[in-house]
């Protein structure tokens, strides 16, 4: 089924408006009789009020207060992603090409991967302080494994034909790594890119939330301390919007870099 894009956008906006409308109606103390809470203001206390939330967001952007925090959160995300991806790529290539090392380290890799790594956040705070680096470290532990496992798989699944063919064409070990294993592994890294960037973002925000002096997670943490539910919601909405933007950016990069991969259907729609 195909829908007119304008109609589709319209309907999507309608869902948003209806949701916000319901939220507004149910939390406005003057509009509805209190059927669940004895105090009409209680619903607003727990669930915030949409227009106040939007007011807070607009305020943040108008005064520019949010930019510093956002920049910190995005910086932590970017660093966590880059460091984690590079480490994952390196270790993944190494272990995939060295069966002995892989056999020795296998149980430890599995162990670290099964560990709920968010519990490391307090330790990182002790090691790296409350600044940017403890959040980056958390992001790295999350990103590393996603990239690592994909690279490992990617290298293992290079067609033996392609390797044999490259060898016959005169490729030495270094050229095999550069021209065969790396590109093949990269395609698997990109396949996990959405996931990895998302996890780097989670690492940054959770790290901030557990202890920080700046960042969007810090804003949320502070607002929660004063029971300012509207600001908490505002922080969540800003984070969600940026997570979506980040995901879109990754999509653009992905389409650029994975041009060589066949799509399910290459035909032009008529």
């Amino acid at each position: 089924m195909r829908m007119d894009p304008w109609r589709l956008t319209g309907l999507r906006l309608l869902v948003l408006v209806v949701a916000i409308g319901i939220w507004h109606v149910l939390t406005d103390p003057d509009l509805i009789p209190p059927f669940y809470f004895s105090d009409p203001a209680r619903a607003a206390f727990f669930f915030g009020r949409p227009f106040k939330v939007f007011g807070t967001i607009i305020d943040w952007f108008v005064t520019g207060e949010i930019f510093g925090h956002l920049a910190i959160t995005l910086l932590e995300t970017a660093l966590g992603f880059v460091v984690g991806a590079v480490l994952g790529l390196g270790v993944g290539l190494w272990l995939a090409l060295s069966p002995t090392a892989s056999a020795i380290l296998d149980p430890y890799i599995k162990g670290f991967n099964s560990m709920p790594r968010v519990v490391l956040a307090p330790i990182f705070a002790v090691w790296f302080g409350l600044g940017v680096w403890s959040k980056v470290a958390l992001g790295v532990t999350l990103v590393f494994f996603v990239v690592f496992f994909n690279v490992y798989q990617g290298v293992r699944e290079v067609s033996p034909n392609i390797i044999a063919s490259a060898r016959m064409l005169g490729a030495g070990p270094r050229q095999l790594l550069r021209s065969i294993y790396l590109p093949s592994a990269m395609s698997w890294v990109f396949a996990s890119l959405h996931n990895a960037v998302g996890l780097a973002f989670v690492g940054a925000v959770v790290g901030e939330y557990l202890g920080s002096a700046r960042g969007v997670g810090y804003l949320i943490l502070q607002a929660e301390g004063t029971f300012d539910i509207n600001t908490v919601f505002a922080g969540i909405l800003v984070l969600t919007a940026f997570a979506l933007l980040l995901d879109m950016a990754v999509g653009v990069v992905e389409r650029r870099l994975l041009l060589w991969q066949p799509k399910m259907s290459e035909t032009e729609p008529t």
Partner: peptide
């Protein structure tokens, strides 16, 4: 080879010159 042994991530020309590159 019997099966495809081209490098799928390389354009045609880059596949052809792979041997020279190596």
């Amino acid at each position: 080879f019997q099966a495809d042994a081209l490098m799928p991530w390389r354009r045609g020309i880059d596949n052809v010159v792979a041997g020279l590159e190596f």
